[in-house]
Amino acid sequence: MNLTVNGKPSTVDGAESLNVTELLSALKVAQAEYVTVELNGEVLEREAFDATTVKDGDAVEFLY
């Protein structure tokens, strides 16, 4: 899956889609429990991480 992460191209191997929690784990995001996630310009509530799917071509920003 090809994404733009914090403005840079990134690839997650072996996945066509992941939820936000899985993406944080796959990318080994440090202190993931404290990060705010913006997906395609929309800031996500932490409670929505498990239910929100990240797909090929999406833009993700991790805000600390």
Rank of each mutant, 00 (worst) to 15 (best):
R46P: 09
E38A: 15
L23A: 03
N19T: 15
A15H: 14
Y34I: 14
T52A: 06
T21S: 09
T4R: 07
Y34T: 11
K28A: 10
K28S: 10
V20Y: 02
N6T: 04
L18C: 09
D13G: 11
T4F: 08
K8V: 13
A15D: 06
Y34F: 13
D50W: 07
L44K: 03
T53L: 14
A26G: 05
G14E: 05
V60T: 02
A59W: 13
V37D: 00
S10G: 07
V20A: 02
E45R: 09
E61V: 14
S17D: 06
S17V: 12
D58G: 00
P9S: 06
A48G: 06
S25T: 12
R46Y: 08
G14T: 10
N19L: 07
N6P: 01
A15R: 12
V60F: 09
E22V: 05
S10R: 13
Y64K: 05
N6D: 06
G14M: 09
F62K: 02
G57M: 04
A26S: 07
L18S: 03
N2G: 06
K8F: 10
A26T: 09
E42N: 12
L39C: 04
V29Y: 06
P9L: 09
G14F: 13
G41C: 06
S10I: 15
D58A: 04
T21Y: 09
V43E: 06
D56W: 06
D13Q: 14
E61T: 14
A26E: 07
V60L: 13
M1P: 02
D56K: 05
V37F: 06
E22W: 05
G41T: 02
L39M: 04
D50H: 08
E45G: 09
E47D: 14
R46S: 06
N6K: 00
T52F: 06
V35I: 10
D56A: 09
L23W: 01
A59I: 15
K28P: 05
R46K: 08
D13S: 14
M1A: 03
V43I: 13
S25G: 09
M1S: 01
G41S: 04
L27W: 04
P9I: 07
T53E: 10
T11W: 15
G7Q: 04
D50S: 10
L63E: 10
N6M: 05
L24N: 00
S25D: 12
T36N: 07
K28F: 07
V54P: 01
T52I: 12
A59N: 12
G41R: 03
L24D: 03
A30C: 14
Y34P: 05
K55M: 10
V12A: 03
S10W: 15
N6I: 02
T4V: 12
T21P: 03
A51L: 13
T52C: 05
V35F: 08
K8M: 11
T4E: 04
D56N: 10
V12L: 11
Y64M: 09
T53S: 09
G41A: 03
N6H: 04
D58S: 04
S17R: 11
P9V: 07
T53N: 11
L63C: 14
D13V: 15
G41Y: 03
V12E: 00
P9W: 10
Y64Q: 08
K8Q: 11
L24P: 03
F62S: 03
R46E: 06
T21I: 07
Y64C: 11
V29N: 03
N19F: 06
V37I: 08
A59M: 12
K28Y: 06
E61I: 13
D58N: 03
A30N: 12
E16Q: 14
S17N: 09
Q31W: 15
A32S: 12
T21K: 07
L18D: 00
L24C: 04
K28C: 14
T52Y: 06
V20H: 01
F49N: 02
N2F: 09
T21G: 06
S10F: 15
S25C: 12
T53D: 08
V54Y: 01
T53M: 14
V60S: 02
E42P: 00
Y34L: 13
G14V: 10
T52S: 05
A59E: 12
T21V: 07
T52R: 05
E45H: 12
L63G: 13
Q31I: 11
L44R: 00
E61Y: 13
E16P: 11
V54A: 01
G41P: 05
V54Q: 02
A59K: 15
N40P: 00
M1T: 05
Y34V: 11
V29H: 04
E38P: 00
M1G: 03
N6G: 05
V60A: 02
E42S: 11
S17I: 11
N2T: 14
A32H: 10
A48I: 08
A51Q: 13
R46V: 06
T11E: 07
V12R: 01
V35C: 07
M1W: 05
E33S: 10
G57F: 03
E33P: 08
D13I: 15
Q31M: 14
A30M: 11
T4C: 13
D50G: 11
E16D: 13
N19V: 05
E45T: 08
L18W: 07
T53Q: 13
G7M: 03
E16H: 14
D58M: 05
D58H: 02
E16K: 13
E38Q: 15
G7I: 02
V20M: 10
V29K: 02
V35Q: 04
L27N: 02
T11V: 13
A32D: 09
L3S: 01
S25W: 10
N6R: 00
G57E: 03
V60C: 05
D56M: 05
E22Y: 04
